[in-house]
Amino acid sequence: MARRGDRRRLALLLGPVTLFLGTCFIGPMAVMIVFSFLEPALYGGVEWSFYHLNYGRILGWADSEWESFDPVYAAIFLRSVRLALTNVVILLVICYPAALWVSGLSARWRTLLVFLTTLPFFVSLVVRLFIWVLILRPTGFLNSSLIGLGLISEPIDIIFTETAVLIGMAYVLLPFMFLPVYASVEKLDRSLIEASSDLGGSPLKTFFRVTLPLTLPGIAAGAVLVFIPSLGNFIVPDLLGGAKVLMIGNLIEQQFLSARNWPFGSALSVMIMVVMFVLIIFYLRQIGRQGANQ
């Protein structure tokens, strides 16, 4: 900016936010990264010396001796990735047809249904998960109903399984998949679909050759938006998975609140952050490439 008055106004407008996010957002991130390279001391403290084995421990080497390979944490990390990916697939299967259905309705119904789909998002996360605890626990709604109907005699174990965790995560993260997918389905040029079927393409062929490729950006956005919070989730596995379905988020929580190994917990957090950055950079590059092609 050339004019001096403009520069001053810009500084006034941006000064407070720069100061705040600089100290209270970038600062904490930096401190956490520093912590992840410190040596854990007894009773929850830290030694101020460089220590790389927090990361070694995640991969399976807890100390410098290479025989002690035990990838227990890597297994939890992989399980989290697997559950997060499964959740993305589940939500895609649930939300994509729903988005197709909504986009074919009249404008009035479309607005109403998009509103209804996002409304639960405004309800507290604890409340939404509490509802699923009520449904899935041994004396819960599902088991009481099934026993009441005489379909089963013993309650089935569904809470504290991966199934329960997946149901809970799908329920909590549904709008993050529905909204981007719906946005891309709605923008779809209907004449292309009609052209495909006029030219003799079966509905299935039209879907895989026309609809799906054109809505890929929405699917990608939804996948990233669902995958990131699924990976680091600890409330859902805590309430619906119990001690049996430990995810990376539970591991981090334990390091801070019971094990008191802050450097290791920080290293785990940094791992999640790295995965997130890689995903987002990859996503932005794909979107950029698509924009260049069009």
């Binding site: 904490p28 956490m32 989730n233 600890f234 981090i252 920080s266 957090s269 997130m276």
Partner: peptide, 9 residues
């Protein structure tokens, strides 16, 4: 940023 990362930081 995932909630847990920001919370820990």
């Amino acid at each position: 940023m995932p909630d847990i990362v920001l919370g820990i930081a």
